[in-house]
Design a protein around this nucleic acid. Structure first.
Lengths: 198, 198, 198, 198
DNA sequence: AATGAATGAGAGTTCATTCAT
DNA sequence: GATGAATGAACTCTCATTCAT
């Protein structure tokens, strides 16, 4: 494949399929979603989906991969890696929220991992991995408490963000910045090395 | 049949159905679960399920109701309400974990709310409500920070516990007591009024 | 069984069952009707129906038997047998319409014969048989045309009355007496020995 | 495939389905008939039926429509319209019998109208309408008695033919021509303007 | 005799998947 | 490569029938 994309048509169709599939899977769930609906939404025939994915589960796999990648890319932004803790918390969480705004239904999508044929691949999500990396980095720099159980803390932080997102879904009027600030503050109090007094 | 044994047969059958349904729904998901499997597992005929629940969705509703109730009961134990913060965190979290041990797959179950016909009833879960009540109580007693956004913090705490549970599922060898201690510590640092120094 | 009915309770229950069954079968059809509905309508338990009838088909048989008998009784009224043709036509048809008013849905019921386990018994209906007997009687008295094919004419007359009944169902405002007069006139023109002129 | 052969496959399949459905519905009734049997008989998969009809009731609707149309077409043959009464009776009845030979079980089919989702459409059957038209035509030409109640007479004639058909079903050895002659004679005596004597 | 909870075979319907065009 | 008509396995739900009480 050359640098300037030779198969724009196909790429476009694949994107249309992934877009439609993301929409349907996240809004209605895996089993409820009909491939024919996705095809119609994407403006292609059902058979076309089968030219790109082995089946329904593999299509979900593709959807999850793309969504996770988008999240992970945001969090792995080198610019963020240079920020010291606790300020970095705000940057990380902002990145997650920004990605979540693009991939609006990631939270719900992630719950579908179980259906993906290669579910194992998603057992440890890219997002979770990015969180772990950031925390490890903070510990290496002595900006985070050494006595923290890293894998456990990463899961807890992950859940905390999910909980905050659910709060925003339940009360859409909330100010995202304020929510981000609350999570950042909680993270700092919980994970950062206490600042020496005085 | 003893005198204080009211309709044991029917109660037993309903319980068997709910037990089997909980097992299947939480382990395999709503759509994937076949009523015939639940019936077989419960040792009853399919028709018997329909004598108690209008359909599959209503059966899930019954399962969720029972599970939520069990959790909420554990957390509303009056004995817990007398413990001051931050010690109370340990008690609450222990209660959740103990209930989770009985209702092993609550976390996964809760994700199924969408399928329940009376999903609205679960919009705000009993567990979440219990958490809110405890936090409010702590704030009234000045044991928790006054500047905490209660509804948001409750969701975040809820998510944090879910995350910890996922960690335990991923690594079953973990010591539950240690996990509980980590959550309790994080909660204390994050939510408790800082103790005066000195 | 003595002359004065010893088992009024059972007879009453049987009647209630037959009444309810007649209502349901004729209004909604055989397959659509649920035994539990009939039982509820009759104020008995489902099991009670099985104490009197072998099954659903046999219950329909009982319903048809009773309805047919009621019709046949009306038409076999000795008073009618003394009337000469063509006047007798009016009496016969009036009797059918009167019975149809009591057993409101006979026409629809008869269509259900196919479902009765002893359908053979109904192949030649009582009503049809009564019509045949009357026509034979008229031929014996030379009041009806000798060249009429009796079994065929009986079926045709039967159908003609059914057609008239459908007309009344379609246009309930019709005057029954006028309808009866039309059928009687048609029968006379068609079946009676032409009166000598002059 | 020739040029003037438009979508033969699909048309053929639809026809096969309608043929099989007609056979099954008329021989065994609506509820008793299984879609899987119709599909097997038609040499298609069950799903194929659902590509053409919304469900079982709509399939019956399609069957009734086609059958009625076939009958009505036979009766509306312009050649018949030119024959004067009473000779026209023979032509009409012959046409009905000929169509009945093709659509062997129309009489029984018509009784199923109740199950068709668009039953209303069949309230007044095409056949009945054709009969009415012929009678009206006869009255306009002064070939039929003016004092006949047209809608009622049409229903009665319709029923008379049905009765005759039942006679033929009960006694298959009967000569159709003789049966037709009997109906035609009855119709003439009943409906035609009496011929002036002399 | 009367009941109705329990049963499970069986039907309509859906939809992922295939493949001829 | 693209399509969508065709397929049939598999599901939920119903209800006649049984039988313990």
């Amino acid at each position: 494949m050359t640098t300037n994309d030779v198969k724009p048509a196909q790429a476009t169709k694949t994107d249309a399929i992934l877009d439609a599939a993301t929409r349907h899977f996240s809004m209605h769930g895996f089993e409820v979603t009909k491939l024919s609906d996705i095809a119609k939404d994407a403006g292609v025939g059902v058979g076309t989906i089968y030219l790109r994915y082995e089946g329904k589960a593999e299509l979900l796999g593709g959807v999850l991969d793309r969504a996770e990648q988008s999240f992970a890319d945001a969090m792995n932004d080198p610019a963020i890696r240079d920020i010291p803790f606790p300020e970095r918390f705000t940057a990380i969480i902002s990145a997650i929220f920004k990605a979540a705004d693009r991939e609006r239904d990631l939270a719900r999508l992630m719950a579908l991992s179980a259906y993906a044929s290669h579910a194992g691949a998603h057992e440890t999500s890219h997002v979770l991995h990015a969180i772990k990396t950031h925390l490890q980095d903070g510990m290496d720099r002595n900006e985070l408490r050494a006595d923290v159980d890293l894998p456990l803390a990463a899961r807890m932080a992950h859940g905390m963000v999910e909980g905050a997102m659910r709060a925003m879904m339940a009360e859409p009027a909330r100010d995202p910045a304020a929510v981000i600030a609350q999570i950042a503050q909680a993270s700092e109090l919980w994970l950062c090395t206490p600042k020496p007094k005085g």
